[in-house]
Simulated scan of single mutants.
Amino acid sequence: MVTAVALAPRFGFPTTTPTPLWNDRPLPVAPAPVQAPNWVELAKQLKPAVVNINTKRVEEGMPQLQGPMGRDDQFQQFFKQYFGNQRRTVRSLGSGFIINPSGYVLTNNHVTDKATEIHVKLADGRELSATVVGRDPKTDLALLKVDATGLPVIPLGDSSGLQVGAPVMAIGNPFGLEQTVTTGIVSATGRVIGEGPYDDFIQTDASINPGNSGGPLINGQGQAIGVNTAIFSQSGGSVGIGFAIPVNVAKPVVTQLAQTGRVERGWLGVSIQPVTPELAKSFGLASAQGALVASVVDGSPAQKAGLKRGDVITEYNGRKVARSEELPRVVAETP
């Protein structure tokens, strides 16, 4: 016998369906108007312009020696007195990319820093000696020159409009593995990682490892929009957090390096700090934007312009200053 059983609502419990705590409605986002970049074709065309940089430098100094009972400065002095400072040759690998058919190669300064010999290996197998046209430690950029013409190049794009989530491709020589291509997206822009006064890094999850430094970060149009520079890793390998110098930071630096071999920057003469929401409220500002002047150097352009401690700079030379980190870069670009 089949019996149908109806359960009555328990006393005190509602009979209506409760409103869920979450919202499952899809976002009203229009589908992407274009397909994913043709990475296969872009890689074929761009890889010939990416180079392997091999450097040699000589380091002097005694290795840290220990006596039988552990660290002993007298033991160290004894060996230094009789054997002197030891010299050793250190070799390192990095990447770079050709930006001019006449042999100009853009890379990181730390790839070639203190190098006594620099060799650039082209995709066609040629290995050429390179000279340093100029270097800029503050942005970690260096411009090299090889004696060759008619070389393939990678065009420089515009990093100012780069959007988080945009697809990107990294090309380089991680661990000496030449012409390695990885892809990912832009994870963030404007990152400050403590590398220098002009930090403005692009963060990407495209795999970047030791040896990738100096290689290009490419957008979907086949243009370099960054110079791969650093990774965040506790193991030394890629964990999906890589950083690239925006190409818009590199362009004025490269121009000056090619012309004079060095970079000259504007100087304002202030120390600054961020405008926090609390400070913005105390100053009566509509939003927490700009750079708060903490001090002014005597005789500086800032003092001559009438800037005082406690002023908030929201615009410089016609350019908006939304964050305090932006002011040093804007001032530096002043002729």
Rank of each mutant, 00 (worst) to 15 (best):
P48E: 07
V50M: 06
V50H: 00
V50I: 11
N52F: 15
I53L: 00
N54D: 12
T55M: 02
K56D: 08
E59I: 15
E59N: 09
E59M: 12
E60P: 00
M62D: 04
P63N: 04
P63I: 06
Q64I: 15
Q64D: 14
L65Y: 15
L65K: 11
G67A: 13
G67E: 11
G67S: 12
P68E: 13
G70Y: 05
R71D: 12
D72W: 13
D73S: 13
Q74I: 07
Q74E: 14
F75Q: 08
F78W: 09
F79D: 06
K80M: 14
K80D: 14
Q81T: 14
Y82R: 15
Y82K: 13
F83D: 03
N85E: 15
N85T: 12
N85I: 03
Q86P: 04
R88E: 06
T89K: 13
V90H: 05
R91C: 00
R91N: 15
R91M: 11
R91L: 11
L93N: 00
G94K: 04
S95D: 00
G96A: 02
G96K: 02
N100R: 08
P101N: 08
S102M: 07
G103I: 05
V105W: 04
L106D: 02
N108A: 03
N109T: 07
N109C: 06
V111M: 06
V111K: 04
T112D: 03
T112L: 09
D113L: 11
D113P: 00
K114E: 12
A115M: 08
T116Q: 14
E117P: 00
I118H: 07
H119D: 13
H119W: 12
K121L: 07
L122V: 08
A123F: 15
A123Q: 13
R126F: 08
R126D: 08
E127R: 14
S129E: 13
T131Q: 15
T131H: 06
V133G: 03
V133H: 04
V133E: 09
V133M: 12
P137R: 11
P137I: 11
T139R: 12
D140I: 09
L141T: 09
A142T: 15
A142C: 08
L144C: 10
L144M: 10
L144I: 10
L144V: 10
K145L: 00
D147I: 10
A148L: 09
T149D: 14
G150V: 09
V153K: 00
V153P: 02
V153Q: 02
V153H: 00
I154M: 09
I154F: 07
P155M: 09
G157N: 05
G157A: 07
S159E: 04
S160R: 14
G161D: 09
L162Y: 04
Q163E: 10
V164A: 10
A166Y: 03
A166L: 04
V168K: 07
A170G: 07
I171N: 02
I171E: 04
G172F: 01
F175S: 03
F175G: 01
G176R: 01
G176F: 00
L177M: 13
Q179D: 11
T180F: 03
V181C: 06
V181K: 01
T182S: 12
S187A: 03
